[in-house]
Computed example of a mutant assay.
Amino acid sequence: MSLKTYEQILSTIDPRVSKAAKLRALYPVIEQNIHAGARLGMIVDDLEQLGISMSYAVFQNALSRIRKNNKTSEPKNSNSPIPAPPPVTAIPSPVPAPAVTAPPKRIENPIDLRAIRDMAIDLNALREEGLANRRQKKNDEH
């Protein structure tokens, strides 16, 4: 590992700051070591030698919190230019729903659903049709 690098970074920090603040300062070097193949247990041992004692679980939790904070704050702190929005093209006008007198045979898109929802239903005619169907069934049975 790079104990000397850790020591250099820690020498620039007030020794009275919290362990989490020290880990945040060491985070870039810790990530480099992890990407180079170092295991978290090895890093915990190195930190122990430098006087930052913590368990493996505490280190893992602190590291995940630092990563999470870095992910959420990256766009705010990045110096990269803000990407330009895509060029505005002519917005197509919405296609009006066709006049529907009967429900569509298949529902294939939201327009079909809206047509069914907005259909005018004559409840009296529907009742009469139901009664006529019942009468016909009774007549067919006899």
Rank of each mutant, 00 (worst) to 15 (best):
P86S: 11
L10T: 12
L47D: 00
M1N: 09
K105G: 07
A102D: 06
Q136F: 05
K138P: 01
I66K: 00
A90Y: 11
K22M: 14
N61G: 06
L131K: 14
N109P: 03
R24I: 13
A115T: 01
V44H: 07
I121V: 13
A97R: 13
I34L: 15
V29K: 12
S93L: 13
E7V: 09
P110N: 07
P15W: 04
L131W: 11
R135K: 14
K137E: 15
V88H: 06
A25P: 09
P87Y: 06
K137D: 13
G51W: 03
I111Q: 07
P104C: 08
P81L: 12
A115Y: 00
R117I: 09
Y6F: 09
E48V: 02
P85I: 04
I13T: 04
R135C: 05
R16L: 09
L26K: 01
D140S: 13
A97W: 04
E48Y: 11
E7N: 11
D118R: 06
S55G: 15
D118G: 03
L23T: 01
R24K: 09
K19S: 13
A62G: 00
E129A: 15
G130L: 15
Q8F: 08
S78P: 01
I121A: 04
D14I: 07
E108N: 12
A99V: 15
K22G: 05
N124Q: 06
R106T: 10
R134D: 12
I34Q: 01
K138W: 12
Q32F: 09
G41F: 05
I107V: 15
P85M: 09
P28Q: 08
K137S: 14
S93D: 08
I91T: 11
I121Y: 05
A90V: 13
N124S: 01
L3W: 07
L50Y: 05
Q49L: 12
Y6R: 03
P83H: 00
L113I: 15
V17L: 05
A102Q: 11
L123V: 07
F59W: 06
T12P: 02
I30H: 00
D45Q: 11
